[in-house]
Design a protein around this nucleic acid. Structure first.
Lengths: 103, 103
DNA sequence: TTCGGTAGTCATGTTTTTTTGACTTCTTGC
DNA sequence: GCAAGAAGTCAAAAAAACATGACTACCGAA
């Protein structure tokens, strides 16, 4: 393996970053499901037939890191984690709705 | 090759289609360059170091099919083809600008 | 009629992304 | 302690995306 220089930070436009955080086989659908309410890992896995634990874990981590989702430990009945739309994520929903009127 | 059932049309939300037509290694940058003016195949190839004729051909075709770009034969000096933003593509630019204020 | 410039296609190989299946950690209930 | 359900991790295989190099087709000028 040769040493690579990372030039991915040299983006020409802020929207490119967003496209990246929403690109991938499952992220768009995860985002849409998140607009319907908070998500739990295993339940999400079942709602995305053909997906895998691995890709979901990666997608959720990246979407959280980019500030689209929040990850919350819920101290209740069966102690679990909830992924929900962040404020930033919610503001995106509005933009997407605008988008739908143009398409 | 096994027979596959195409369920890609069963999208839950119009924005998903858009994300698809803008996902891939080069499409976002092609889109951005298109906002600066019409593009020609070989010139575009040179402006995207590391890209290939093949991926560009595919990306341009898909972006045209999805109505983001128009493809025009220009009957002039060195008879060429121009890829330009369609009206629909241009309206997206406005949305992206809105987006940038949220990020 | 051959040449240079246009815009591609095609087969192949490499690289990246995703899936698969086994394994881990934590917590609660029995 | 042991099992069961939560949310993962890891290595390896399979699939998809992309790059490379050779080739095609079209037009206009020499």
């Amino acid at each position: 393996m040769t040493t690579e220089i990372d030039t991915t930070g040299a983006e020409q436009c802020p929207a490119q970053g967003l496209l990246k955080t929403l690109s991938g086989k499952w992220k768009p659908e995860i985002f849409r499901l998140a607009t319907e309410g908070p998500l739990r890992f295993n339940a999400l896995l079942r709602r995305l037939p053909g997906s895998s634990r691995q890709s979901l874990a990666v997608a959720l981590r990246e979407m959280e890191e980019s500030g689209l989702l929040t990850k919350t430990l819920v101290r209740q009945k069966p102690l679990h984690i909830e992924y929900a739309l962040s404020a930033r994520g919610a503001s995106l929903v509005a933009v997407f709705r605008t988008l739908e009127n143009l398409l």
